[in-house]
Design a protein around this nucleic acid. Structure first.
Length: 430
RNA sequence: GCGGGUGUAGCUCAGUCGGUUAGAGCGCCAGGUUGUGGCCCUGGAGGCCGGGAGUUCAAGUCUCCUCACUCGCCCCA
């Protein structure tokens, strides 16, 4: 074994890829039902797009980006998050001209240079949505509800939905000041990373996991007290709408998120079973980002959902979505004389829309039957010297363990009819 | 970047106090059945015991280094 997949990356093998496809189709379906359109953006962007949007001091920008220069010296970065590229594409292609809001979804890879562990990889994949051009709290609630409906439909329950409002930059600055003042006295007792956060990213002190820090920051001021009136009203409407939609949620005044561009609403869906990780979906409102990136002042809302984390959650729940692929028909070609005729038969079957597989190398009947069994095919068609001579084919129902002969000419249609009947019989019997 | 754990067959793992030719189950291939899958039986292929150095008469086993994987910290999906 010489080459390996790079650290923190994974091959998605045939044994698993059907699970991915099933989730992707489900997500697409749910997004389309809500009026969202799919968008795909490049795998890399100008580095500055991310440093401007995510924030210079965040960990993603300061130590986790896969950045490089191309052969003509352009500074580029593999997409470390989903939102900024879409906002860039929205501005660049003037998507807003078609009427607001623009409702988008995506399924994509994300790259971050991190130490891998359970539920965390250097390349991972996300489902996401972005609704650009509406400040209505209905959008926040609708998209959170969409995430919940999707998670529920694939079997990810139970989860905890946490929401918070972090206000607008001006109100947040006031709050951060109050926060710093209130912990200044105990600063020396906080953990080393909280002491660093105090200077660089004070809000993050709120969700430190250290019990000691938790205790010391216990009666720190509540961000809700510092919200501007518009943010407070918006948050109230979001909560009302979520309640009206029948969603259980928890207001967590300590919920903060890693990107600088968030305003007002932030939320996370948290689940058990992801190792040290617990967020399967997170997002919020980013009313300043479009303008920050050079577009017109435009409010927006979005979320990202980790596909690997979702899969881990489903596995832990014992939930499966979709089915592994299997053949409808397996063609056994016994003897030299049946090789070409058998290939032609398989092609005929495929033309009718049936999945047909076969074995190669003219192996023994036993070996071919064994492979037929493994293929999951309901029906095996056997073509040997006898069949060729009589222009017939032997059909074997692998479940009923019965076999009979059919005329070779035109048998594909009969096979299709038989399988449709057999399947419906099976459904009727349960 | 910093800690802990684990590296033996394609996969999951045994391997005693350091001892002679390194094992099992599953999977794969073949045969038992010269045209019939699953169950059963028999046989076969498949190993740089992660890599390097050291200790020893002798190392899969002990020591050190290194690499990889993995779990956790930081942070995030």
């Amino acid at each position: 074994m010489q080459y390996r997949a790079p650290r923190g990356t994974n091959d998605i093998l045939p044994a698993d890829v059907w699970r991915w496809q099933a989730l992707e189709e489900k997500f697409r379906g749910i997004c389309r039902l809500a009026g969202l359109s799919e968008i795909r953006t490049p795998g890399f962007e100008e580095t500055e797009l991310f440093t401007r949007s995510i924030g210079e001091v965040t960990d993603i920008v300061s130590k986790e980006m896969y950045s490089f220069q191309d052969r003509s010296g352009r500074d580029l970065t593999l997409r470390p998050e989903g939102t900024a590229p879409i906002v860039r594409a929205w501005i660049e292609n003037n998507l807003g001209a078609e009427g607001l809001p623009t409702k988008l979804f995506y399924i994509t890879s994300i790259f971050r240079y991190e130490r891998p562990q359970a539920g965390r990889y250097r390349q991972h994949h996300q489902f996401g949505v972005e609704v650009i051009g509406a400040d209505d709290a209905s959008v926040d609630a609708e998209m959170i509800a969409l995430a919940a409906r999707f998670l529920g439909s694939v079997g990810a329950a139970p989860w905890t939905l946490k929401i918070n409002s972090i206000g607008v930059p001006a109100s947040r600055a006031v709050y951060v000041q109050a926060l710093k003042e209130s912990v200044a006295g105990v600063l020396g007792e906080l953990c080393a990373s909280c002491q660093a956060r105090y200077e660089k990213n004070p809000l993050r002190m709120l969700d430190c996991k250290e019990p000691k820090c938790r205790e010391l920051t216990n009666d720190v001021p509540d961000i809700a007290e510092y919200l501007d009136s518009e943010s407070a009203a918006h948050f109230e409407k979001v909560r009302e709408a979520l309640t009206a939609l029948g969603l259980d949620f928890e207001v967590d005044p300590r919920l903060v998120r890693g990107f600088d561009y968030y305003t007002k609403t932030v939320f996370e869906f948290q689940v058990e079973g992801l190792g040290a990780q617990n967020t399967v979906c997170g997002g919020g409102r980013y009313d300043g980002l479009v303008e920050e990136l050079g577009g017109p002042a435009t409010p927006a809302f979005g979320f990202g959902m980790g596909i690997e984390r979702l899969l881990l959650t489903l596995e832990q729940r014992g939930a499966t979505v979709g089915e592994p692929p299997r053949a409808d028909v397996f063609v056994v070609r016994a003897g030299e004389g049946a090789q070409v005729e058998g290939l032609a038969l398989a092609e005929e079957l495929r033309k009718t829309g049936l999945t047909a597989d076969t074995d190669y190398g003219n192996r023994s009947m036993k070996a071919q039957m064994k492979r037929a069994g493994k293929s999951g095919a309901r029906l095996t068609l056997i073509l040997g010297d006898d069949e060729i001579a009589s222009r017939q084919v032997t059909a074997r129902d692998m479940i009923a363990q019965q076999q009979w002969r059919l005329p070779l000419e035109g048998c594909a249609g009969m096979v299709k009819d038989y399988l449709e009947t057999a399947e419906s019989d099976q459904i009727r019997r349960g």
